[in-house]
Amino acid sequence: MNRILLYIHYNKSDELSGHVLYQLEQIRPLFSRVIFISNSHLDQNHIEKLKMIGIFEIIQRENIGFDFAAWRDGMTYVGFDHLEKYDSVTLMNDTCIGPLWSLEPYFRSFESAIDCDFWGMTNFKKTKYFREHVQSYFVSYSQAVVLSKVFQKFWTSIKNFENVRQVIDNYETKLTSKLKKSGFNYKVVFNTLNEQSEGMVHPDFSYYKPFKILEHRVPVLKVKAIQAHPLQADQLKNKIREVTEFPIDILNSVYSSIEFFPVENEQTETYTLLKKVRNKIKRVIGRKG
């Protein structure tokens, strides 16, 4: 398959983390071309490391507009007349560790599926605040999607929003529905639409349920999903070591370099959830009364 990857690097320093280099080294053979988009200046030594694993096209840009503006700039660099020639265009960022298992079988499975025009790792079911959507940290689009007017119009219209909620509301949650409305179908490794999510502030399994991610063999795991659960950090680390193919030395390096979120964050989220449940009960009782 003739594939292209647009990969975003977010590290604020001028260095590449070991898990990022490992990730790129593992997935590079899957793609005919990789565009590395860095939202920070890269040290020349790390540019050479990228070249050593076969990545020669590097865009260094100002960290503005979040993921979608960076991918827009990557597409502008390549040009839609060239993007259209690839069998698929994959968008990914460096916010995850992995691959936990080889990505090749996932590509082979989804690309051979008749009813799959684009695919990702996890989806987010519709709520009061968000539309159903494929989560943007990894999505692969078929040539048919890339050729479509709706896809190209979407990406050429991306603005440099300064608020991440604007990006989520206007871009991440809307692209999936725009493509579905145009007749395209999607699949994900872990379909969460029918999963129970009562114990979560938002039905974001990629963040709140890292053990579920492993259970469903999602081949990448968000670093924030590790950071957000300090009380389960060791248990999660042991599970990753037990069930995945991820190198222990890289995993240890990730754990030693990240800052865990305060335990109070988990308690605050639990309180917020309980408050929502109490308010809902009050409304129900009020209507019955």
Rank of each mutant, 00 (worst) to 15 (best):
G18M: 08
G18K: 11
G18D: 10
G18L: 08
G18S: 06
H19G: 12
H19L: 09
H19Y: 15
L21C: 09
L21K: 07
Y22D: 13
Q23G: 10
L24F: 15
L24N: 13
E25C: 07
Q26S: 14
R28C: 09
R28F: 03
L30C: 01
F31Y: 15
F31N: 08
R33K: 15
R33P: 13
R33I: 04
V34N: 07
I35M: 09
I35Y: 06
I35E: 04
F36M: 07
I37G: 05
S38F: 06
N39C: 04
S40Y: 04
S40G: 09
S40K: 13
S40A: 15
H41Y: 03
Q44G: 05
Q44D: 04
Q44S: 05
N45K: 13
N45A: 12
H46E: 04
H46C: 02
I47E: 03
I47H: 00
I47L: 00
E48K: 04
E48V: 03
E48I: 03
K49L: 06
K49D: 08
L50T: 07
L50H: 02
K51G: 03
G54P: 02
I55W: 07
I55F: 01
F56D: 00
E57H: 05
E57M: 05
I58S: 01
I59L: 13
Q60L: 12
R61W: 00
N63V: 02
I64L: 05
F66L: 05
F66D: 01
F66W: 10
D67H: 14
F68R: 07
A69S: 12
A69Y: 12
A69Q: 05
A69H: 15
W71V: 14
R72Q: 15
R72N: 14
R72M: 11
D73R: 09
D73P: 04
G74C: 14
G74F: 10
M75A: 15
T76P: 00
T76R: 15
Y77C: 12
V78H: 07
G79H: 06
G79M: 10
F80R: 05
D81R: 12
D81N: 13
D81C: 07
H82W: 09
H82A: 11
H82E: 15
E84Y: 09
E84D: 06
K85A: 11
Y86L: 03
Y86S: 04
Y86I: 03
D87H: 10
S88L: 12
S88P: 04
V89M: 02
V89A: 02
L91Q: 11
M92D: 09
M92A: 10
M92W: 14
N93Q: 08
D94R: 07
D94M: 03
T95W: 03
C96T: 10
G98P: 03
P99K: 13
P99S: 14
P99T: 14
L100T: 01
L100S: 01
L100G: 03
W101R: 01
W101A: 11
W101S: 08
W101G: 11
S102G: 00
S102K: 12
L103N: 01
L103P: 00
E104P: 13
P105Q: 08
Y106Q: 00
F107Y: 02
S109Q: 15
S109I: 03
S109T: 10
F110S: 00
F110W: 01
E111H: 02
S112H: 00
S112R: 08
S112P: 04
A113I: 04
D115H: 14
C116F: 06
C116Y: 00
D117L: 02
D117M: 05
